[in-house]
Structures are given as structure tokens and as C-alpha cells.
Design a protein around this nucleic acid. Structure first.
Length: 470
DNA sequence: ATGTAC
């Protein structure tokens, strides 16, 4: 495959064969050398009906189901543009929530072990079912699917200021709960307020470096400040919705005469019964994920208040697996696009109307979870951001789970982390070993390339004090 | 990521 360096941190794959648009990869040379296999998927995505601009890849791109993880693709709704569940991923609206404590590391120090014990005991996690909120009935699940974080806050699981610091004010509009199947509902009923497993985590962190003090201050962040970062998604419910709609679209494609280079790119026109059905179900799953993070945030607040008398304020909540109908200019013409971000984070620039008033001057907080035991970042959107205002989402896996677990035992990894002063509360040794930092790309290199490519700007770097793992 | 296969 011919990949041409256009600028430092920007590479182009020229159009050929079935590609409707070129591929654009934002990466350093080093990161690009790890992404070769995923670039085949970038090329495949470029063949989607209605795709505009380019098939984009972020610096943390890696192999995924059909679409690469770290991919961004937008289709023109009025020009036969399609929506594809593979362009969102199985974990619909997987994302990150960051809360800031009203104290710094030195003040909280003595209470940290009790806080970690409290979080470790109270956070439902791992592959098994268990939740903070026992819905008990399909009627209440229906409200979660329609109302997301907003419904959780209305029911007392949150504070007044929370919703304006959530993407979409805490709930995606246009959820069509009628498109959420019985199996998805069954799986979702007992998991609202649970972390899950894999790379999902809850971390207590400290702001270790501030790159832009005025923007950090607008976000409510300062050097030394204690934070809580929560990375999780829509659990079994989102997974089931993705499976159900991939199957429906696989059947529908022939009827619409759509041909794609990989069956995993199953899709349907946005403006079709199947396209609308998926988008409605996807929005419901997105609301479930938002409610999930809202409840885990509340759980953290309770533990911090109980163990240390510390208050937590929401900085932001943003998803990195979602398709959204957005207005963008294409060739100087405003168009309505379906923007797929899979392992890519929306990064609104300063002045964007979708930002809350108190952030309008500085841009959207972009939350980047690092690998366990390394660091995480808060970035912000920039004017003229490319790829429809998108940037990276994290470190990006490099080694398989199996490879990772072969290299280190869970017990050994925990002692390594604890020796560095990081408290570990894991639910499975095997799960911990699979998430060893060596299995991932360097999140700092990913963030550096994203900033270098002009997709975002660094605001602060966070380091872990304690980690709760599924 | 995921009741790690239907």
C-alpha cells in the first residue's frame, strides 16, 4: 500500500479501485509503523456509499470489527450516505467521565487507602452482572434508554450542574426504545452502574502537569488536584444492539444494492427503515452508557464524601464510540452528515454552539484515558480541527490479550504498580495481566502526534494514585 | 468490548 507523507503527522493513501475518497492517517512515523494492518480497513471504509472528505485514522488506530478502532468516517445523508454499526463498535457510547475533587494530593493523602477500599468494595465490575442501580422493571429501563444521565439526575443520582458538563446535556435525542430488542433489554436490566471489564477502569488521579493554565482553570483543574476518571460503556445492552442490527443490515444491503469490501462493514442508508432503526437503538444504548457513567460518578462522590469529606465536581463526560448527525461544510457547502467516530473523540473548538456557556471561550474538554499505571490526558478542541472535529481516544492496544497475559502475572503486575505508589483494586488476576501497559502503545506519543497533526491541544496530564479494574 | 459460540 502506498502511504505518502504530506506533513509531519499527516499521511495520505491515494484513491484507487473501490475507494470513493482518499485515506488520511494522522500519526508519527513510528506510530504509523504499528498500524499497517489497520490501514487496510481505512481503505475499505473509503468505499462506503456517500462517504465525504476522507476515511480518517487517528494516531491510536488499530484493527477492529470492519472499521478500524481510531477511525472517523462521515457520510452525506442527502446523497445516499450510509450508517454502519461497525463504524460505532460493539461498545456503543463507550466513553470517559472526569470529576475533580475540591482538594489536592497532599490534603487527601492519609485518606487515600480508605477511599480506595471504599471504591474497591462498592464498584460493581468484572464480567458478571451486578449494578449500583437495581431497576427491577422494564418500565424503568425504558426511562434510562430515553433519558440517560438526565433521568439518573432526576431520580436523585447527581447534582444540578452535572448535565451541562455532559455531551448532549446528558441524553441523546431521538432514542427509539422500540428498536431495542428483548435480549438487549434482558442484558441491560441488571447492569446500570457497573464498570465492566477489559480496558475499562475507575482511577483516582492527580494533575501532574498543566500545559495551558487558563484553559485548565476554565475546566476546573489545577496542578496537584485530585480527580476521578471513569472509562466504561453500555455493557451487554450495547453489545446486543450492535449484533442485532449488524444482522438486520447484512440482510438489507442486498435489497439496497450496496456492495462493501468486507461483510463486517454491513450498513444501510441513514434515510432508510434499517438505518433509522439502528440510529434509534444506538441512541438508546448511548443513553444507557451515559446513565451508567452518571451512577458510577455518584458512587465515587459518596465514597469521597464518606471517607474524606471531599466534594467532586463534574469536569466533562464524552463518548468515543458513536455516530452522530452533524452539520459540516464540505467543499464550502453546508451538509448534513452522519459522522462515525469509533475509538475517536469529538473535539469541539472554542466558540462552538454545542458547548456550555462557561466553556464556549476555551473549547470542549477531550478526555483521553491512558493505560493502567501510565498517565491520562485532558485535551481541548481547536479552531479548524480536521476530521469533523475529532481526535484520538487513548493508547490503542498493540499486543493481544493472550500475549499480554503470557508476559506478566496479575500478582506481579500489582506489586510493580504498588511499588510505584499506585493502589490496585482488581477483580480478576487474569484480567489485570491482560491490561499490562506493555500491551499498549504509548499514550503520550499518541497525544503528541494528535497535537502535532493539529487535531487538539494538550491541557493537563494526569497520573494514577489508585486504580479499580474489572 | 462481550453471559469470549448458536
Amino acid at each position: 500500500m502506498e502511504v505518502v507523507e504530506e506533513d509531519p503527522y499527516r499521511f495520505r493513501i491515494a484513491r484507487r479501485a473501490r475507494m470513493r475518497v482518499p485515506g488520511v492517517v494522522f500519526a508519527s512515523r513510528d506510530l504509523l509503523s504499528h498500524a499497517e494492518k489497520a490501514l487496510e480497513q481505512v481503505v475499505n471504509v473509503a468505499a462506503l456509499p456517500g462517504i465525504v472528505g476522507a476515511s480518517y485514522a487517528m494516531p491510536d488506530v488499530h484493527w477492529g470489527y470492519g472499521f478500524p478502532i481510531g477511525g472517523v468516517a462521515a457520510t452525506d445523508v442527502a446523497d445516499g450516505g450510509v450508517v454502519s454499526p461497525g463504524g460505532v463498535g460493539f461498545d456503543i457510547s463507550c466513553g470517559v467521565r472526569l470529576l475533580a475533587a475540591d482538594c489536592d494530593r497532599t490534603a487527601i493523602g492519609p485518606a487515600l487507602p480508605a477511599i480506595m477500599d471504599g471504591l474497591g468494595q462498592d464498584t460493581p465490575r468484572g464480567a458478571v452482572t451486578g449494578a449500583v442501580w437495581h431497576l427491577g422493571s422494564d418500565r424503568l429501563l425504558e426511562r434510562v434508554l430515553a433519558g440517560g444521565s438526565r433521568y439518573a439526575v432526576e431520580e436523585g443520582h447527581g447534582e444540578d450542574g452535572d448535565l451541562r458538563r455532559c455531551e448532549d446535556d446528558g441524553a441523546v435525542a431521538d432514542a427509539d426504545t422500540g428498536q431495542v430488542g428483548a435480549r438487549a433489554r434482558e442484558r441491560g436490566l441488571g447492569q446500570v452502574g457497573s464498570l465492566g471489564s477489559g480496558n475499562h477502569f475507575l482511577e483516582v488521579q492527580e494533575v501532574a502537569e498543566v500545559y495551558d493554565e487558563p484553559v485548565a482553570a476554565a475546566f476546573g483543574l489545577a496542578l496537584g488536584q485530585v480527580c476521578v476518571m471513569i472509562h466504561c460503556g453500555s455493557r451487554g445492552l450495547g453489545h446486543q444492539i450492535c449484533s442485532d442490527h449488524v444482522r438486520a443490515m447484512d440482510r438489507a444491503m442486498r435489497r439496497y444494492g450496496i456492495e462493501v469490501p468486507d461483510r463486517q462493514l454491513a450498513c444501510a442508508p441513514v434515510d432508510s427503515p434499517e438505518g433509522r432503526a439502528y440510529l434509534g437503538a444506538m441512541a438508546a444504548a448511548a443513553n444507557y452508557a451515559r446513565a451508567n457513567r452518571q451512577l458510577l460518578g455518584e458512587l465515587s462522590r459518596r465514597v469521597f464524601r464518606r471517607e474524606a469529606g471531599v466534594r467532586l465536581t463534574l469536569v466533562y463526560d464524552v463518548s468515543h464510540n458513536l455516530a452522530k448527525i452533524e452539520e459540516h461544510e464540505v467543499d464550502a457547502t453546508p451538509r448534513t452528515l452522519c459522522v462515525h467516530r469509533k475509538g475517536a473523540t469529538r473535539a469541539l473548538p472554542p466558540g462552538h454552539p454545542d458547548l456550555p456557556a462557561d466553556l464556549r471561550g476555551v473549547g470542549q474538554p477531550v478526555l483521553i484515558p491512558g493505560t493502567m499505571g501510565t498517565c491520562s490526558y485532558v485535551l481541548t478542541g481547536v479552531p479548524r480541527g480536521e476530521a469533523f472535529h475529532s481526535t484520538c481516544h487513548g493508547a490503542g492496544r498493540e499486543k493481544s490479550r493472550h500475549q499480554a497475559a503470557r508476559g506478566v502475572s496479575g500478582r506481579e503486575l500489582r506489586s510493580r504498580l504498588e511499588a510505584r505508589g499506585i493502589a490496585v483494586r482488581a477483580s480478576s488476576w487474569r484480567g489485570l495481566a491482560e491490561e499490562t501497559p506493555e500491551a499498549y502503545k504509548d499514550v503520550s506519543a499518541v497525544v503528541e502526534a494528535s497535537e502535532g497533526a493539529g487535531l487538539c491541544r494538550r491541557v493537563v496530564r494526569l497520573v494514577p494514585l489508585g486504580v479499580v479494574k474489572g
